[in-house]
Amino acid sequence: MSIATMVRKGGRDFLLVPPGVLLAMFWLLACLSLVIVLPLVSHLDVTAIDLRARLSPPIGFGGDWAHPLGTDDLGRDVLARLVASLRTSLAIALGAVIISATIGTLIGILAAHLRGWVDQVVVAAVDAQVSVPFIIISLTLTAIFGNNLYLFIFILGMFGWERYTRLARAMTMASRGRGYVLAMSTLGFSWPRIYLRHVLPNIASTLLVTATITFPEVILLETSLSFLGLGIQPPMTSLGNMLGFGRSYLLTGWWIAVAPGLAIFLCALSVSIIGDWARSVIGRI
């Protein structure tokens, strides 16, 4: 014990943000501001067709500034579509993470508080969710209920709920067992007060890190499904369906696929890097 604490004392340099993490943060901020600012200064028309410039390559490969990232086979501007897709994908992923984190955490705390058969059911559900690949569940639901946006958001909003449930349940139980929660309950505090004012703030950092780690996975799930043609449908555009569409033009217009492919990769990578760093700072999970 004493050695471990001493070693931790020695490793104080974690407060310095490593350059890779800074770079990742910078990229995400750039994406966010691009997504928010660009539509304000120039109107993004994802369906505008420039028939004189079909399959025009990006700058540096023979293209011009009219279409910095080139155009697709219908003459639609790749940059405009990329920004719109990025916006859709990020918004959906963010929304999905918030939904699943909220629901998952509430279920976890409830299970830990109520115990008994409620807890048993929750644990069984978590186990079942873990043992079946999520993409299969989403495919099945899509097959049964047909493809629509609300179902799609519901599916993504379910993704990862079991992680928050499991963590929130375990940590709530741990704090219930011996620590301040027990103390407060003997002091006459009400349960909602204990959970919302004391337990939640104390486990929030861990849950937040989990959310950060889940975020790239949600991006990948959304883009995978959209790529397979089972997610976002035209005329809406997301990074996944843009890539799925560009796949047919690998021979004649590689940039149509490369632009969203790189964007997906870099966004997922940035969030992963930040998540890993956050986890190492918190030092648990």
Partner: peptide
């Protein structure tokens, strides 16, 4: 490992196609 984790299957697959096939 981090890069591999963030690289989705379909992006990696298409990249391989672009390189080895195209």
């Amino acid at each position: 490992s981090t890069v591999g984790f963030a690289l989705p299957n379909f992006v990696l697959g298409l990249a391989l196609i672009l390189l080895f096939s195209v």
